[in-house]
């Protein structure tokens, strides 16, 4: 796929001999939602952390927007237009909801060490813009509240707002719905899907909730023990014998490596 926003070729990572990720390749196009699924320990989080720059791959290439980002730091990668949410939400607890988003906007636009970042009050800059994003996410009513007081479901949504604040081209979402109530999950994923289509965002997400995966993903990639075992549209993946073996259990889960 030449027009892909994110291309990963032959990505591998081992921890002290344990092969966490082995030769994973994938591509995500603008406006596409690619779900990465697999049982615990399949290598999903390791993959994510490599795409995001938190850990460096042993081998393989990562290209984002045509640029080789293999081994770059998370800061550099984020400046190329990559938004990220975490399995356990990470927000700035000593700030208000609005300030969380404002800081992300400020950082994406001006960097954090430009001369003007030493002057003026962040609280007065880019407030309107932050409010637009919060409105989109449905958190405008909470904009002035301290982040610490929010219920967890709202914090997960705030993370999405922060990730969107830098106008990203690629969104990496590690279990975006983990820890949310069923109704909230559906709403969040519907919203993500709508935004991705409207803004032509490429989205790569992991999820354990199969209802969400099959309803929202355009394509699914299945990992097991660090390797890709299936890839394709939801219908195909659902019928795939290997995937069924991994998820439903055929007794062959721990088959010998070839």
């Amino acid at each position: 796929m030449s027009d892909a926003l994110l291309t990963v070729e032959n990505l591998s990572k081992s921890y002290q001999g344990v092969k966490a990720v082995q030769g994973v390749s994938l591509a995500v196009a603008p406006g596409e939602l690619l779900a990465m699924i697999g049982p615990n320990g399949a290598g999903k989080s390791s993959c994510f952390n490599m795409l995001n720059g938190q850990i460096k791959p042993d081998t393989g290439r990562i290209r984002i927007c045509g640029k080789d980002t293999t081994g770059l730091s998370p800061e550099r990668i984020s400046r190329l237009g990559v938004g990220r949410t975490f399995q356990v939400a990470e927000t700035f607890l000593s700030m208000t909801v609005r300030e969380n988003v404002q800081l992300a906007i400020q950082s994406a636009r001006h960097g954090t060490l430009s001369l003007q970042s030493f002057f003026g009050n962040l609280g007065r800059k880019s407030a309107a813009e932050a409010d637009d994003i919060l409105d989109l996410i449905g958190l405008l009513g909470e904009a002035g509240r301290s982040c610490r007081e929010l219920p967890y479901g709202d914090i997960k949504r705030l993370e999405l707002a922060i990730a969107l604040a830098g106008d990203p081209k690629l969104l990496l979402m590690d279990e975006p719905a983990a820890g949310m109530a069923t109704r909230e999950r559906m709403l969040l994923m519907r919203l993500t899907s709508r935004i991705a289509k409207e803004r032509q965002l490429a989205v790569l997400f992991t999820e354990h909730d199969m209802d969400i995966v099959f309803e929202h993903a355009d394509r699914i990639i299945v990992l097991n023990r660090g390797q890709v075992i299936a890839e394709g549209p939801p219908v195909d993946v659902r019928m795939n014998a290997d995937v069924q073996a991994v998820y439903l259990g055929s007794g062959a889960l721990y088959k010998q490596e070839h």
């Binding site: 984020s78 938004g83 927000t91 700030m95 800081l103 950082s107 960097g111 830098g166």
Partner: peptide, 23 residues
Amino acid sequence: SPFGYSLRALRDSPMRSATIGIS
């Protein structure tokens, strides 16, 4: 100032800070 917020952001959550481009 925005600088102060970035500094505090690093204290609150280094991971989140990195992913919004704070060095």
